[in-house]
Write a protein that binds this DNA or RNA. Structure first.
Lengths: 183, 183
DNA sequence: TAGGTCATGTAACTAGTTACATGATTTC
DNA sequence: GAAATCATGTAACTAGTTACATGACCTA
């Protein structure tokens, strides 16, 4: 018997969403990912429909076709095994998950000294700050939007906010370092 | 003529590293990625060697074989076009790059209410805090390590540090919210 | 009745990964 | 002289993506 392979983050996250939203359709799960503020997964049809079939085969969820539904909707629900898998996933926090997450702005800042003029460097920092501020406003607005899962969405948005504010403070430190060491 | 396709982040980042470390080998670039604290890319041989060939074909770098070197070392250098590409990459900051970055711990915290007992939830938060603290110490130690590109590595490490400390504060807020709303 | 959304799914592609293979050089 | 590291590269795989296709239902 083939050893059961670990689920990917997307698979675990989908399983968690089904646990929360059940009974729900694959389409519903997909739109949940689509409207999420973090851009990790688009959860495109090409990934999510095959993924759901895998979860069914693994008996982590069950899918029930509504009899007489012309649209062919399927109601997804977690099985007991599925609930256990969600629980196990949450408690399995590996050390590497705690590492700093890659940030495209930080990546570019690493090469800041390859911008030729001090003016270019200042422009980069200013734009990064501006974009981050806009993003902070967006997340704040979303927090107040309707249709949210109260506690969970609030916590996640708060986490995103803390991260963005940290980047803003860091960019300020970067700016100060640039100002004190002109070439 | 086929429109030139955008480079990926890994390609741009590699180009930037070559600009900084030139002349250098593909192997050197690879170990630079391998020892980097962020885990975005392992820059495995299977990705990096073909990537270098693409950059050569695009005339963004040139590769010179050392005559008479039995190991077959190749010295990589950026071309003028390559330098321009690095410059353009840095200045091309799209709004979406400023969004909050996905964090496996935040993802799991989103499903915190699926842990059955308050004790499990507290254990999750405590472990997340502990792992984050360990990671902060690691980054702090690395900052003092030798062999670093002084300014650039210091800035990047500082950015990672700010992010990790923000997560720590957020986890504290999460803990307080859990404590005030037991079920 | 036209256009948007709900709802399913597939085919071709992309950008990486792991694992392997080869051989030279350095270090203990 | 054995083991680690330097240095190159390829083959098979993985986990997603985009783009397409089909059709029902809803609303202005």
């Amino acid at each position: 018997v083939a050893r059961a392979k670990r689920l990917t983050e997307l698979e675990n996250c989908t399983l968690g969403l089904i646990a929360r939203l059940q009974p729900c359709s694959t389409y519903r799960i997909r739109s949940e990912f689509a409207h999420s503020s973090t851009t990790e997964w688009s959860a495109s049809a090409g990934s999510i429909y095959p993924l759901i079939e895998r979860l069914v085969r693994l008996k982590l969820i069950k899918a029930e076709s509504r009899s007489g539904d012309a649209r062919g909707r399927r109601d997804l629900r977690t099985t007991r095994r599925g609930d256990q898998a969600v629980h196990a996933w949450l408690l399995d926090l590996e050390p590497r998950f705690a590492s700093a997450t890659p940030d495209p702005i930080r990546t570019r800042a690493y090469f800041l000294d390859y911008l030729r003029s001090a003016a270019d460097r200042r422009a980069f920092i200013a734009r990064a700050q501006q974009l981050t501020k806009i993003m902070i406003r967006t997340v704040r607005t979303e927090t107040k939007a309707k249709g949210m899962i109260p506690e969970a969405d609030h916590l996640a948005a708060l986490g995103a906010l803390f991260q963005l504010e940290a980047r803003l403070r860091w960019l300020d430190a970067v700016r100060k370092l640039q100002d004190t060491r002109p070439r």
